[in-house]
Design a protein around this nucleic acid. Structure first.
Length: 494
RNA sequence: GGCCCGUUCGUCUAGAGGCCUAGGACAUCGCCCUCUCAAGGCGGAGAUCGCCGGUUCGAAUCCGGCACGGGCUACCA
């Protein structure tokens, strides 16, 4: 097996730039990255852009951005270079051509002049006579090479097929997750490696590149297992050692079908744009078909990059659960310090909602620190923060109709508000604890249930039946506004 | 059709012959805390380990068959 200078693994993530990074692809990328980091190996990013219709520079940018956001840094690849570039397949056509010519010359591949119609007819016929083998019938396999070359040179449309060696018995795929998977070479087609238009096919280029880039382990989705024996044949034809494979199970939607658009957000940029923490997404995705041990669920990227092992990847496909992601996102938010929470969650959210300007945290660090304290345990997703903090903005709160009725539309409201106003008016220290202390004896004095008393105050101050604790909330509001809000509600209270 | 893969609570998983009367997490339910909403703490319910046979003193774990699901079988990647 080929290895890098240090004898360490070399792995790659090889997406085709189709416009977004799917969760399945992201998870494959995560496993490759984590494996490389955990083993001290090399993580290569290669762009498989042999399909010119979908592959644009813009789409490639999307992938690179998503990878960076996920925190999956690559050692070799676009923009960072490396000793085995270029790392874009569209820039390697000459290389592939050279290899194909070599296989042709060595008799390991041959020209095929069959038309699509011919192929289709053959397939139908095989079906009709119930032939278990419905692949290519090898019509052109025995054309004299010299003559075939002449016809090809003369411009006759043709493809190049890889010749499955006669007598090649079982093809064994060594797979770290599935164990040895055995295929009978007789089931394998002489498959196309170069199309009529001269472009090489995926099953060929992927191997050509993996050899050239000295990959030691191929970690990819389960949907590739059936193609692997074909690729093994390419390794052999090219005279290269076969790498070790690790086919990871697919990710499914809630209905058990392969994850796709109709399951909702399936690309990492959608989750990013919804405000999820990249580390939470990585953690959640890593836990699909992989586990650290029997109980750990919170696994920061850094730990993943230290502890990941292919031995602990399971064989079962996994259903992606957005609820778990949301919970995990909350866990990562809780783990932030108040300052981080203020800067990374509060400020962006409030700015996006038009409630604050950039730089607000720097301008009022203490205020934001308090806000972070009370909002952190209530925030599962960054953008929610603005909604929770909205009541702090504007002179008077946006009054919720139902809250107004329940909180202010009864005979307890008025005395509660008046008493609160009186108690707060004379307060010297406008600080959460002091505010709480001032309000605390009032319900008893008034003979009103705590619940009713605080509900009236809460609605008056926040316009809502649910809010963070009143003490710190009023502190954040400031004395003037807090009193003004009580006054305003006294006007409408029964 | 052929070939390949997979099958443990609703979901993610632990489990590599006795530690399993199957453990953890999410979701769910209840209780506690409490001025609301969260957070937190405690607890409950939830899996005849796809089915049927076999091996064994003993099987979720090993073997075989079946069922179901998925993948591949392209001049897509």
């Amino acid at each position: 097996m080929s290895q890098n200078e240090a004898g360490k693994p070399r792995v790659r993530f090889a997406p085709s730039p189709t416009g977004k990074l799917h969760l399945g692809g992201a998870r494959t990328a995560i496993f490759n990255w984590a494996f490389a980091r955990a083993t001290g190996g090399t993580f290569v990013l290669r762009i498989e852009d042999t399909d010119p219709t979908r592959s644009t520079e813009e789409n490639e940018g999307i992938i690179l951005r998503a990878m960076r956001w996920l925190g999956l840094d690559w050692d070799e690849g676009p923009e960072v270079g490396g000793p085995y570039g270029p790392y874009r397949q569209s820039e390697r056509y000459d290389f592939y051509d050279e290899l194909i010519e070599r296989l042709l010359a060595e008799g390991k591949a041959y020209y095929c002049f069959c038309s699509p119609e011919q192929l289709e007819a053959d397939r139908k016929a095989a079906q009709e006579r119930k032939d278990p083998f419905q692949g290519y019938q090898r019509r052109c396999r025995n054309i004299d090479p010299a003559e075939a070359a002449r016809r090809a040179a003369s411009g006759e449309p043709c493809v190049v097929r890889l010749k499955v060696p006669d007598g090649r018995g079982d093809v064994v795929v060594r797979d770290l997750i599935h164990g040895d998977v055995v295929f009978n070479a007789k089931e394998l087609d002489d498959f196309v490696i170069r199309r009529t238009d001269g472009t090489p096919t995926y099953n060929f280029v992927v191997v050509a590149d993996d050899i050239a880039m000295k990959m030691t382990h191929i970690i990819r989705g389960d949907d590739h297992v059936s193609n692997t024996p074909r690729q093994v044949l390419v390794y052999e034809a090219l005279g290269a050692p076969t790498p070790i494979f690790a086919h990871v199970p697919m990710i499914l939607g809630p209905d058990g079908k392969k994850l796709s658009k109709r399951h909702g957000a399936t690309s990492v940029e959608e989750w990013r744009d919804d405000g999820y923490e990249s580390e939470a997404l990585v953690n959640c995705l890593a836990l699909l078909s992989w586990s650290l041990d029997d109980k750990t669920t919170i696994i920061p990227r850094e730990v993943l990059g230290r502890e990941f092992s292919l031995e602990r990847v399971s064989k079962n496909p996994a259903v992606f659960d957005p609820k778990k992601l949301l919970w995990m996102n909350g866990e990562y938010l809780q783990a932030k310090s108040d300052e981080e929470f203020a800067r990374e969650v509060l400020e962006p959210s409030l700015v996006a909602a038009g409630l604050e300007e950039r730089g607000c945290v720097d301008a009022r660090p203490e205020w934001f620190s308090l806000l972070a304290q009370i909002l952190k345990p209530r925030t599962k997703l960054a953008p929610e923060a603005a909604g929770l903090a909205r009541f702090l903005y504007g002179e008077l709160p946006e009054m919720d109709g139902k809250a107004e009725r329940k909180g202010l539309g009864n005979e307890r409201a008025r005395p509660s508000l008046k008493a609160a106003k009186a108690a707060l008016l004379g307060l010297e220290s406008w600080e959460g604890d002091a505010i709480d202390a001032a309000l605390e004896p009032l319900p008893d004095e008034l003979g009103i249930k705590k619940r009713d008393f605080y509900q009236a105050i809460r609605v008056a101050e926040t316009g809502s039946l649910a809010s963070p604790p009143l003490g710190p909330s009023l502190q954040l509001l400031g004395k003037d506004r807090a009193l003004k809000r009580l006054d305003a509600s006294l006007e409408i209270a029964g």
